[in-house]
Simulated scan of single mutants.
Amino acid sequence: MNLIRALTLRQLQIFVVASRLPSFARAAEELHLSQPAVSMQIRQLEDALGLPLFERLSRRLALTEAGERLSHHASRILGEIKDIEDTMTSLAQADSGTIAVSIVSSATYFAPKLLALYSQQFPKVDVHFSVGNRETLLRLLQDNATDLAIMGRPPPELGTTAEPLARHPHVIIAPLNHPLRDARRFDLQELAGDTFLLREPGSGTRAVVEHMFRQHLFTPARCVTLGSNETIKQAVMAGMGVSLLSLHTLPFELRAGALAVLDVNGTPLERTWQIVHLTSKQLSPTCVAFRRFMLEHAQPYLEREYAEFLPQPSSAAARRAAAAAATKHGGDGATDRTVAR
């Protein structure tokens, strides 16, 4: 007996309905079929099984022992089919599923809050996110180990699609007793005698500060490499030197008045947060919806959170300014949609 070939889901559906009604005529009414059509499907099912499924008792249909047992299995099979249908519909509507998101360490100060907001709206979506420097994210993208990455510069060495999320200003910070704390619009060369505290090679922040040095033909008296934004902030507060960091890593220190932002010409350096994925990757509907959520919410959220530290233009103007600045400074950002190869 090869039931896989002999049975159909339609036969099981008709059987389950007929098994709980007193006659094939009533089953036909519920199924919007003719009574002969119902009788034919039941007969074909019985022929495939080699056993009678119904018997007539006192002018009513009753299940045989084979019918009773089949009723249990058929209901379970149809229930599983319904679960599959619900799951596929849910995925198509992007309100469930799994997403892998990777973020650079500088984005840890805002991205988790946006992820939490997304999870409140889509509680059935399981978001896995990891944190690393730029090189780590490039490796994850290259290995197809992440769906989406939130970072600064889109990687030209990979075939990726990058879309701008929000402005990403960088500022020069100093200890509160720095002699130029209250100076206005002075040149970077005035800091030539200072020690600059830098992120590790491979970090996006390190690339930004090195670009600034080249652009201004600037060589600091001394450079010290430290492994994280938090370590750099503590070192600056302790008086070890000055540093260029993302403004988005500084909300707590600036609100507490623990650091000074120096008013250096050419700063804030405007970059752009990007959301990146491999161009060859087929994003699921859930990933597409998550990307759309981030594109809609990141800029307004950052404008609200950092309005007290920098004047914020409108969202549309911010994107135009950030894209123009990124293009001017060697491709650290992207216009509406960038494919990097």
Rank of each mutant, 00 (worst) to 15 (best):
T225A: 11
A258P: 10
L254F: 03
L262G: 09
L217A: 14
T161W: 13
G241H: 04
L259V: 00
D187H: 11
V261W: 02
H216Q: 15
L165E: 03
L244H: 13
G257N: 07
L269D: 01
T160E: 08
N229Q: 11
F252G: 13
V264K: 01
S228A: 15
G257A: 01
I232G: 03
E210D: 15
H170L: 13
P201F: 06
T205H: 04
R199D: 08
P156L: 13
G159E: 14
A207K: 06
L244M: 15
P169I: 03
E253F: 09
P175Q: 10
V242Y: 02
P164I: 02
A221H: 14
G266Y: 03
A221K: 15
Q234Y: 11
G266R: 08
H170A: 09
T231W: 04
H178I: 05
H277M: 13
P251F: 01
M212G: 02
F186R: 15
V171I: 08
L226R: 07
T205F: 00
T272N: 05
I173Y: 06
E163H: 07
M212A: 13
V224P: 06
L176I: 12
G202P: 07
S203I: 02
G257V: 01
A183Q: 13
G239P: 04
V209N: 01
P220E: 10
E190R: 15
L226E: 10
E230H: 02
L197W: 04
Q215E: 15
P175W: 12
P220L: 11
R199E: 06
N177V: 14
L244P: 02
F213G: 03
P220C: 09
H248V: 00
T225R: 07
G204A: 04
G202S: 05
P268I: 00
H178Y: 12
H168S: 09
L245K: 04
S203Y: 00
